[in-house]
């Protein structure tokens, strides 16, 4: 390289610029992942205790039923809930994809449909509680366990709705919705965990009774 070339090269050297901003870390997703692991362990414990107690009860009381007399645990409503929640997985992913593409209209539609599915499940749960006629005070071991499991699920489903709402506000109010992809993915992760838990719960409590 000649001296002239060298000086020309030096002349086009860009000015010293600040260091690049490091890429966003998926903090919210990782945190939600840990919270979801916590949730899975919680419901895992509830269902483990439920199945263990049911097995002990049935082996100690041959011929009797686990669900106390007079109570009816129908399968139709819980099955509809299972499929409703499964559909909400699709709409939730639709919201995530729309967020990554900064498509406000689709984000809004997808989140509304997801929330609608969730509210429908809550509504069906309330209907189920009224319909099944299971008294918590009847002295049976089954009643407190069933109410604990289903009640806990309902409580966490409400929390999932709140999480969804907060993310919806953040994403839709932001001039750049795709910046909040981490938060929307985190909300989706939590939602999917809830759907997975419901499917396990559906099989353990309602299908196998």
């Amino acid at each position: 390289m000649t001296t002239t070339e060298h000086s020309a090269h030096a002349a086009v050297q860009p000015e010293v610029v600040p260091a690049a901003v490091p890429p966003r870390r998926r903090t919210l997703q990782v945190g939600t992942g840990f919270a979801s692991a916590c949730l899975l362990m919680y419901f895992g414990a509830l269902l483990g205790i439920y199945l263990s107690e049911r097995a002990d009860f049935l082996s100690a009381n041959q011929g009797s039923t686990w669900i106390p007399g007079g109570a009816v645990l129908e399968l139709a409503s819980p099955t509809v809930m299972a499929w409703t929640l499964l559909l909400s997985v699709v709409t939730m992913q639709w919201a995530v994809r729309a967020t990554s593409q900064a498509d406000r209209r689709h984000i809004l539609i997808a989140l509304l449909v997801t929330a609608l599915f969730g509210v429908a499940v809550i509504n069906q749960f309330v209907f189920l509680f009224r319909q099944m006629g299971l008294e918590i005070d009847d002295g049976s071991v089954a009643a407190p366990l069933i109410y604990t499991i289903t009640g806990s699920f309902l409580a966490f489903l409400v929390i999932a709705h709140v999480f969804l709402f907060i993310m919806a506000v953040r994403v839709l109010a932001s001039p750049q919705p795709n910046v909040h992809i981490d938060g929307m993915s985190a909300a989706a992760l939590f939602w999917h965990s809830m759907v997975f838990i419901y499917w396990v719960l559906w099989i353990a409590v309602f299908v196998t009774k």
């Binding site: 916590c38 949730l39 362990m41 919680y42 419901f43 895992g44 414990a45 509830l46 205790i49 604990t148 806990s152």
Partner: peptide, 8 residues
């Protein structure tokens, strides 16, 4: 969380 389940 398992302890929490016991408590609930």
């Amino acid at each position: 969380p398992v302890l929490l389940a016991n408590l609930v």
